[in-house]
Simulated assay, not measured.
Amino acid sequence: MKSFDRHDRLLAIGLSALAGYVDAVGFLATGGFFVSFMSGNSTRLGVGIAEMSGNAAIAAMLIGSFLVGVIAGSLIGRVAGRRHREVVPLLLAGLLGGAALLGDFQLLWPAAVLMAVAMGVENIFFSEGTEVRIGLTYMTGRLVKIGQMLAAALAGEDRWGWIPHVLLWSGLLGGGAAGAVAFILVGSDALWIAAAAALVIAVVARKPMAVAPPPA
Rank of each mutant, 00 (worst) to 15 (best):
I71F: 12
V204S: 02
D8N: 14
G46N: 05
A151S: 15
G156P: 08
P214F: 10
R6W: 12
M61K: 08
Q148C: 02
T137A: 11
G161Y: 03
L92G: 08
V186P: 01
Q148Y: 03
G120D: 09
P110A: 08
L143C: 06
W160N: 10
V186C: 05
S188K: 02
Q148T: 10
L91R: 08
L15A: 10
I146F: 05
M149L: 14
G176M: 04
G175W: 10
F105H: 14
A180F: 01
G77M: 07
I163F: 13
G179N: 08
D104E: 15
A190G: 13
L102H: 07
R78A: 10
E157W: 12
S127E: 09
V204N: 04
V166P: 07
G40P: 05
Y138D: 00
L95C: 08
D189G: 11
G14R: 06
M61T: 14
G94F: 09
A111D: 02
L107Y: 11
S42R: 08
A216F: 06
F34E: 00
T130V: 13
G20P: 07
L18I: 06
L75V: 13
M52F: 12
G103C: 10
S42N: 09
L96M: 13
G20N: 03
G147F: 09
S3W: 09
I71R: 02
I134N: 02
M38S: 01
L136Y: 10
M209L: 14
E128W: 06
V132Y: 05
W192G: 06
L143F: 14
G31D: 01
I13F: 11
A195G: 03
A17P: 07
L101E: 10
L102C: 04
I76W: 07
A93W: 09
S42I: 07
A50M: 14
E157F: 01
S65V: 03
V88E: 07
I13Q: 01
Q106D: 14
A216H: 10
F33Q: 00
V166L: 15
A195S: 15
I124G: 00
G32T: 04
F4S: 09
A19L: 07
G174V: 09
V22C: 03
L18R: 10
L10P: 04
